[in-house]
Amino acid sequence: MPEIIIREAIAQGLREALDEDDRVFMLGEDIGAYDGAYAVTRGFLKQYGPDRIRDTPISESVIVGAAVGAALAGLRPIVEIMTINFTLLAIDQIVNHAAKLRYMSNGQFTVPMMMRTVTGGGGQLAATHSQSFEGWYASVPGLKVLTPSTPYDALGLLRASRKDLNPIVFAEHSMLYGTRGEVPEEYFEVPLGKAVVRRPGKDVTIIGYSRMAHIAEEAGNRLAEKGVDAEVIDLRSLRPLDTETLIESVKKTNRAVVVEEAWKFGGFSGEIASAIQEEAFDYLDGPVVRVNGLDVPAPYNGTLEAATIPTAQRVLDTIEEKFGI
């Protein structure tokens, strides 16, 4: 099976959409002549032209709002907002408009648009450029939130998204674009709202998403060296959330750890922990444990920043401390 990196997988998914559906067009800051801030759309402008690859001014609200309007009129816009930090400038359009119009119009309208954006820290970009807000968006009824961590999932989720008539937040992690993985040549999709077990096990369930799915997997592999058999789950979608896979796993392992890059206070990991204790309390040997980004604005200094982001070691230490394994 050929191996590609996530950047190539996303580009492939976008190309398929542009090739197969003339209602699809892209708009965003520097996606054309500049080739994309993270080079996902490299060569797109030349291939598809300026009507379908639309470079915009730095105006996040009208970028997203224009996509909402175009989607209402039956087109299939794909927006790129350079980073999730900048989506805050468009949050009115995302939360008050994109997420609401189908419900508020009693189904007269649908909003088939995707907002791709880049999440996460780790690049020493300091406090305003290193945040993870996908969990915020996942709290909003009316938005679907996808967080791929592999090339396979990125492509599969993009393909499945095209069949969805609802607004989708597609959060790509800035540190994962170069992540390599197998992607079959034959067509496949990854359904929205379906988690995946990365590593089956029986002693403890470690749950992560986006970059933290890799941290969870690394922790699982290192636990195996200690003779602990961890089950590792990658959520892939935050909304809809596949609680079934989580509950099934916890019923087997009786222990759960949630790893998330976002702040612990109000973090999405709290939602996961809550869902598990509500539905599988009697199966738990102890509290659901959360390993989150530290509750500080991301510092610029590399050593300081690294100390804020969960690592496999921190996951191992926490598991040992809380569960004695």
């Binding site: 067009f25 709002g65 309007g69 175009a70 989607a71 209402l72 009129a73 816009p77 359009q93 408009h97």
Partner: peptide, 17 residues
């Protein structure tokens, strides 16, 4: 002000088509 970006998008859809 929320309807102005959406109006812009509706107009964009006309232009695209």
């Amino acid at each position: 002000g929320g309807q102005l970006p959406i109006a812009t998008g509706l107009a964009l859809s006309i232009k695209q088509r």
